[in-house]
Design a binder for these strands. Sequence first.
DNA 1: AACAAGGTCAACCGCTAGCGT
DNA 2: AACGCTAGCGGTTGACCTTGT
Length: 271
Amino acid sequence: MGQLDVDDETSTRKGPWTENEDFQLVFYVHMLGDRRWDFIAKVSGLKRTGKSCRLRWVNYLNPGLKRGKLAPHEERLVLELHNKFGNRWSKIARKLPGRTDNEIKNYWRTHMRKKAQENKRTTSGSPSPSLSLSQCSSSSSICTSNPTFTSMPMIETKERSFYDTGGVEKITIMKGKNNSSFKSGATRVISDASEEGQDGNYWMDDIWKDLDSLEDDHRIKPFFDPYSEIAPSLTWDSCLSTSWTMDGQEEFADQNTFHLTSQQFSSEVND
DNA sequence: AACAAGGTCAACCGCTAGCGT
DNA sequence: AACGCTAGCGGTTGACCTTGT
């Protein structure tokens, strides 16, 4: 991973998402809704699989997502829910609004590894078996039935979480070393307000702001509220009556990917 | 300052459930 | 019932970041 693979015209791209790709994806999801990912991947011109697009949206671009460390009550909830559901990450995530299964999975993995190491240390020499990470992550029954685990104390973090500080949520997409590509894989939440506005930082808010202004400038309106849980289905009539050419958006002009005329769209639909 | 070790998390892969035909 | 397609899920990987020495 890490390499931005795209072998030829037809092959799909892999690796970290760029800022422009993010913008494109947000735009098309805004227009088409967060379904039909293969279709979105196709019409958007992104050299990504539908699967990849979905993942990027679900785990990163979705405006409903929370960022930053899990709050203490969320951590507690994850523990409780994992006791209940095991490794059903998506099920657990549904109980934690704004959190993704991937996030929770990563959290669990990190903290269980830590916990397993602590256990190893504290129980070394003790006859009682310590709980290994593999046991925990692969079998919920072991975790739930293990008294040392169920009575596991809350992990108190020394750092103040985003929720504790009440700070403004900020996400940075850091530029790669050569400054030509963004390492979206290196996206980080910055809690220090002094970082704001530094070169190379790009806030998700900016994407949404840009999108808003784009809509104002070019009279492109979403056909539904993208923030609502159930997006009404898009009618083809409404799509076809709209010219999607984004003239004036020089940033995308050189990519030739952020253009979709009604004719092009029509041919896609008829395929 | 330089390096190593450990931590974090985005993104990939393989599998499967659900749905339509 | 069988098949194909799509979306979603869980496990895993590896690049980048942070912290310790």
